[in-house]
Amino acid sequence: MTRLDVRDIPPVDRHPTIHDAFDDLEPGETLTIVNDHEPKPLFYEFQAEVETFDADSYEVERVAPDEFVAQFPKTEA
């Protein structure tokens, strides 16, 4: 599992950084994102643009008011 805390990354660089990290995953692995807000726009972007994103297995948990932990799983096939 790869964990990426994007809270200290400038907002303009967050999505490209996340996409690069996701691309580096092996099939069946999951990218865990720690963000300061619920990453719904990112979820929709992945759902629309990333064929290997397993949207059905996506999960997000609010851990604190400014901490959301989201699971972006990569399909095995």
Rank of each mutant, 00 (worst) to 15 (best):
E38F: 04
L31E: 05
H19Q: 10
A64W: 02
K74N: 05
V60R: 02
F68T: 00
P73Y: 00
V12Q: 11
I18E: 13
D54K: 05
T32M: 12
G28I: 09
H15P: 03
T32Y: 14
A55F: 09
Y44H: 13
A77Y: 02
A21K: 10
H15V: 08
L31T: 07
V50E: 14
E59Y: 01
T75Y: 00
P73L: 07
P10Y: 10
V50A: 00
P16G: 01
E29H: 03
D20K: 11
R62G: 07
D24A: 15
L31S: 10
T30C: 11
D54W: 06
D54F: 04
G28S: 09
A21Y: 03
K40I: 14
T17G: 03
L42F: 14
D20C: 01
I9D: 06
F72W: 04
A48Q: 11
D5T: 05
T17M: 05
D24M: 12
L25E: 10
D13C: 02
P39Y: 11
V6W: 06
E51N: 14
P39R: 10
V69H: 07
E26H: 09
T30M: 13
L4D: 08
P41S: 14
T32E: 14
F43Y: 15
F22R: 02
S57V: 03
E67Q: 15
S57N: 14
D54Q: 08
P65R: 08
Q71A: 15
D20M: 06
L31C: 11
Y58H: 13
R3H: 08
P39H: 14
G28L: 08
P65D: 15
F68Q: 05
F46K: 09
L31A: 10
G28Y: 04
E61F: 05
